[in-house]
Amino acid sequence: MTSIDLNSDVGESFGRWTLGDDAAMFSSVSSANVACGFHAGDPSVIRRTCRNAAEAGVVIGAHVGYRDLAGFGRRFLDISPSELADDVVYQIGALQALAAAEGTKVQYVKPHGGLYNAIVSHTDQARAVVDAVKSVDPGLPIMGLPGSEVLRLAEEAGLRAVTEAFADRAYNPDGTLVSRTQPGAVLHDPAEVAEHVLRMATEQSVRTIDGSILKIRAESICVHGDSPGAVAMATAVKSALADAGISIGAFA
């Protein structure tokens, strides 16, 4: 592998509440998952994030999630597929308008948090997300976990399915992410995170929570923008990849 996409969740501030240092993250990543207002973000934050991403040459994706500001979109919501599909369409449309106002555009969709984890196996909700994206623009790729229902259904629907790995998250042996409620679920040490990513990029594998090695092939690797020390981790990852002769470039 000579090139890999690095993505980060951004635009997650709200009103007077600031989360993450998006401007600093843009110096390390190639794709930006912009919150669309349902789990985080407001119109002014979203528009500013689109502007800053465009100025940095970073590709914009719609980070769609459950309508759950209080829970930051990390809780599962048992809503109907039709309601979920409408919510996803609404979020993509909002981001498309604000991106267009800044002379840029939405180039992919990545579900967030609770929704992202649910559609690894929840077929009805996964289909709702795929149907929503296809109804807005069948040219928009969907990003998700390798082996997930949403990517399987995306491919069946003729959409591009983009596999993703996580720089700062621990993995279970079955390829799912360790729940954030469990100790060790989130990695914080920049050196450990860089090693984690290098193994993904050079060996297409990851060391799981029990020490076993899992084969994983990813087109994009996520460094969460809201994690403590996120900028340091992203910088370490970028440097480690450069030292290994691997460049950073958007998949979209």
Rank of each mutant, 00 (worst) to 15 (best):
T208Q: 05
G225I: 02
A234H: 06
E195H: 09
T202K: 13
I216A: 04
I209G: 06
G211I: 07
G211F: 12
M233V: 12
K215C: 09
T208L: 05
K238P: 07
R199H: 06
A201Y: 00
L214S: 03
R217G: 11
A232N: 12
C222W: 02
V197K: 00
A234W: 03
K215R: 14
S205F: 06
E219W: 09
T235S: 14
L198I: 08
D226S: 10
E219I: 07
R207H: 08
D210L: 05
I213E: 15
A234S: 13
A230M: 10
S220M: 04
H224C: 07
S220D: 04
A236Y: 02
S220E: 02
K238T: 11
H224Q: 08
M200R: 00
D210V: 04
I221F: 03
V223F: 04
I213D: 12
V223H: 03
A201T: 02
P228T: 11
R199C: 02
G229A: 11
D226P: 07
S205V: 06
G225N: 03
V197Q: 00
A236C: 13
S212Y: 05
I216C: 04
T208W: 03
S227V: 13
S220V: 06
V206E: 00
S239V: 15
R207A: 09
G211K: 09
T235E: 15
V237I: 11
T202D: 04
A234V: 09
S212G: 13
I221M: 06
R199S: 01
R217I: 08
L198V: 13
T202P: 04
K215H: 14
S212P: 05
I209K: 08
H224S: 09
A232Y: 08
G211D: 15
V223A: 06
A230H: 07
M233N: 09
A232C: 10
E219H: 14
V206I: 14
A232M: 10
T208G: 05
G211Q: 12
T202H: 03
S205D: 05
R217A: 12
S239P: 06
M233H: 05
S227N: 13
T202Y: 02
